[in-house]
């Protein structure tokens, strides 16, 4: 556990982990293994905003990052839209911040 991973985990937890009763209560726990889509259950717009914030704050090159690999609009009737559903975990954010560019395809 170094400062960088603690910073990124705190960033995700304080901004994108929902509270138990929406306005109060404990936030969902966030660790390096937390999956943004399956555990935090963000919508695609929110996840996109989060990644944008992340790329800017830690000056990571977003080359090669496509939100559609990880997220899906999930509106009723979008069954035929491709959904690779690759896992997007907090550890991937940490590793890419270390490298300075997005490491995964």
């Amino acid at each position: 556990m170094d400062t960088l991973s603690e910073e990124i985990i705190a960033f995700v937890r304080n901004n994108y982990a929902r509270r138990r009763f929406i306005f109060w209560g404990e936030r969902l726990p966030v660790t390096a293994e937390t999956r943004i889509r399956d555990d935090l259950k963000l919508t695609i717009e929110t996840a996109e905003a989060m990644m944008q914030e992340y790329f800017e704050h830690w000056s990571v090159h977003s080359q090669g990052f496509n939100i559609r690999n990880y997220f899906h609009p999930e509106l009723p009737g979008t069954r035929d839209v491709p959904d690779p559903h690759k896992p997007l975990t907090v550890s991937m954010l940490i590793e890419s911040a270390r490298a300075g560019h997005w490491l995964y395809t």
């Binding site: 901004n15 994108y16 929902r18 935090l40 259950k41 963000l42 919508t43 717009e45 929110t46 905003a49």
Partner: peptide, 8 residues
């Protein structure tokens, strides 16, 4: 799913 955007 959870969002922080009023429009969404």
């Amino acid at each position: 799913s959870w969002t922080n955007h009023l429009g969404a």
